[in-house]
Amino acid sequence: MQDKLTDSVTPQPWRLCKRVLPQHTDHAGVMWHGAYVAWLEEARVEALAAAGLSYSAMATMGVEMPVVAMNLEYRRSIRHGDQIVLESHCGSQSGVRWPWRSCFLLDGLVMAEARVELVILGRGRLLRQPPEAVRPALSALQGGPSNTLE
């Protein structure tokens, strides 16, 4: 088990900085599991927007990317007030799935890791290939940002 992140998830990960607020925690001040899921989604939405495509534009096209699998491994407790950096990488399409890998970092320490798989639906039907209008953004997602999201 890796304790300190010495190599990024990817040479250019997507980054989202978040502070743990009271609404993210349980009564003991520990980050609630549902907040992890919400932050993972926020990171994907923000990365896609930075790559040139908003989720609302995708919805207008009739395209969705629902989560079909998720694995979240907790290593250390994240607590109220912690400033977390969520580093994410969009992998290459594998069959119909689009994998994401993310790390929740506190001062360079890996607090949790997540693997999320999405599929692309067009008007409710599973698509083996993304629509032409979505391809440039998905390609940009795989390459990582030129700067970080804050």
Rank of each mutant, 00 (worst) to 15 (best):
L105W: 01
R125V: 11
G91E: 06
H89R: 12
G81K: 00
R101D: 12
L48T: 13
E113Y: 01
L138Q: 09
L86C: 08
Q83E: 13
L48Q: 07
L109D: 04
Q142M: 10
M61Y: 02
M111A: 11
A49F: 11
E117A: 11
P130Q: 05
V45R: 01
A69W: 06
A133M: 09
E41L: 06
Y74A: 03
W98A: 03
H80R: 05
R76W: 03
P130C: 07
A51F: 10
C103V: 14
L127T: 05
A140H: 05
M111F: 06
P66K: 03
A49V: 10
P66Q: 08
P130R: 03
V116P: 12
L149S: 02
G81L: 03
V96Q: 06
P145S: 02
L48F: 13
S56H: 13
N147G: 08
Q93E: 06
A69N: 14
H80T: 05
P99Q: 14
P99K: 15
S94F: 00
E64T: 12
S88G: 15
R76Y: 09
L72F: 03
A50D: 07
R128H: 13
V67R: 13
A112I: 13
R76F: 04
S139Y: 01
P145V: 05
Y74T: 02
R75G: 07
V96M: 09
P66G: 08
R44P: 11
M58E: 05
S54I: 02
A114H: 12
M70D: 00
L121M: 14
G91I: 08
G143Q: 14
N71K: 15
A133I: 01
L121Q: 10
A43V: 12
I78F: 04
Y55S: 05
A51T: 06
Q83K: 04
F104D: 07
S54Y: 01
L105R: 04
A47G: 04
E87R: 01
L72A: 00
P131L: 09
E46W: 11
L138C: 10
G143R: 14
G122S: 12
I84Q: 02
G122R: 14
L118W: 11
R135M: 09
N71E: 15
S139P: 00
R79T: 07
M111L: 09
Q129T: 15
S102I: 00
R125Q: 15
S56D: 11
A47Q: 03
A49K: 12
V119K: 09
G108K: 03
W98G: 01
E73Q: 15
F104V: 10
A114T: 12
V67N: 06
M65A: 15
Y74H: 13
N147S: 11
G91N: 08
M70A: 13
G52M: 01
R75D: 01
